[in-house]
């Protein structure tokens, strides 16, 4: 098992390298640099911009730029934002990252708490009224675009009923301690549900079909023939097998935890990574774009790594290959 995990981590390294190349190449492939398309001060000599480009290393050949970038990253230096007057990218990102991570975790928690029990229940009673209802809800959840659902949620629950705030992460800086936690959670409800909607539908459908599949398998019949109670059959024999494909899904969703919120954050004016990402793209702030891209990529890779490791915890057939 450990051999497998070590091997899997070793594969992770070249993938990480490939990721940096991709991120760099994509940034270079985009036209323009931070100075193009800006309302430039006409009193400033264009020579100055040229000097700035030279100073920032934007005129170096690509391999040299890449090597410099990598060298800095390996030393923990993600460069400075060009748009935000040279504030460090790390500082910019870390401010927003926590917000996005809370949002992602909150949404994932809601997703799992809602979808897994419903999925199991629908599989236990297939073609029941509740099964049809959740199936209908599932398709609706998958079909409605995030931003649209977000707007409707704001209209109904924030404007009409006034139950939840429609934007931001906290009401004011005055609240502290436990009150702050409650306040922050209160702010997370609408964006969290909006972000988790599609995921909830997906997990629910997966869970239903997996449990249904496993319930029909031979070893479940064996467990029943052994005299195991229905609960034992469901929670011991069925669930562990049904969760194997769910782990794949979670591995992929782990990346979405941080990157999936780009649009939702916009709708709820949520100061997270997504908002920063979109701003940086508009401003052609390449150091920020590249760093966020890299972060998204790393999360997806780590998600897959974790999924693979969890596989071999759950499924003994994978361990000994």
């Amino acid at each position: 098992m450990y051999k497998y995990i070590i091997r899997r981590i070793l594969v992770f390294i070249p993938m990480l390298f490939a990721l940096t190349v991709m991120v760099f190449a994509l940034a270079q492939a985009a036209p323009g640099d931070p100075f193009t398309g800006r309302m430039l001060d006409p009193t400033v000599n264009p020579e100055v911009y040229q000097q700035q480009r030279e100073a920032l290393g934007l005129n170096d050949p690509y391999p040299v730029q890449y090597m410099n970038w990598m060298k800095n990253i390996l030393q923990g230096d993600f460069g400075n934002s060009i748009y935000y007057n040279g504030r460090s990218v790390l500082e910019l990102i870390s401010q927003r990252f926590a917000n996005t991570l809370y949002l992602g975790l909150f949404s994932l928690t809601i997703t799992l708490v809602v979808s897994i029990p419903i999925g199991i229940y629908s599989a236990k009673k297939p073609y029941s009224i509740l099964d049809y209802a959740t199936t209908g809800f599932g398709f609706l959840g998958l079909a409605i675009p995030n931003f649209f659902f977000g707007l409707i949620a704001i209209y109904i629950f924030a404007i009409h009923f006034g139950w939840f705030p429609s934007q931001g992460t906290v009401s004011s800086n005055d609240v502290t301690g436990f009150a702050e936690l409650i306040d922050r959670l209160h702010h997370l409800v609408l964006p969290g549900i909006t972000l988790g909607l599609a995921g909830t539908a997906t997990y629910m459908r997966y869970m239903r079909s997996e449990v249904l599949d496993v319930l029909g398998s031979d070893y479940i019949r064996t467990a029943k023939a052994k005299g195991m109670s229905s609960n034992n059959v469901l929670y011991k024999h069925t669930l562990r097998n049904a969760l194997i494909p769910i782990i794949t899904l979670m591995g992929i969703e782990f990346g979405v935890l941080v990157s999936g919120a780009v649009i939702t954050e916009q709708v709820f004016n949520f100061p997270g990574l997504g908002t920063l990402f979109l701003q940086s793209i508009t401003n052609r702030d390449y150091p920020v774009i590249m760093s966020i891209n890299l972060l998204f990529g790393v999360f997806i890779l780590v998600g897959n790594l974790l999924a693979d490791i969890f596989y071999c915890v759950v499924d003994p057939r994978i361990r000994y290959d």
Binding site: D218, Y219, R221, T222, A225, H237, V314, D315, P316, R317
Partner: peptide, 16 residues
């Protein structure tokens, strides 16, 4: 007690 036709699939793969 009962024994089934398919020993390959009759035991739960994730338990010893």
């Amino acid at each position: 007690g009962m024994i089934f036709q398919e020993p390959m699939t009759a035991l739960n793969p994730v338990y010893t």
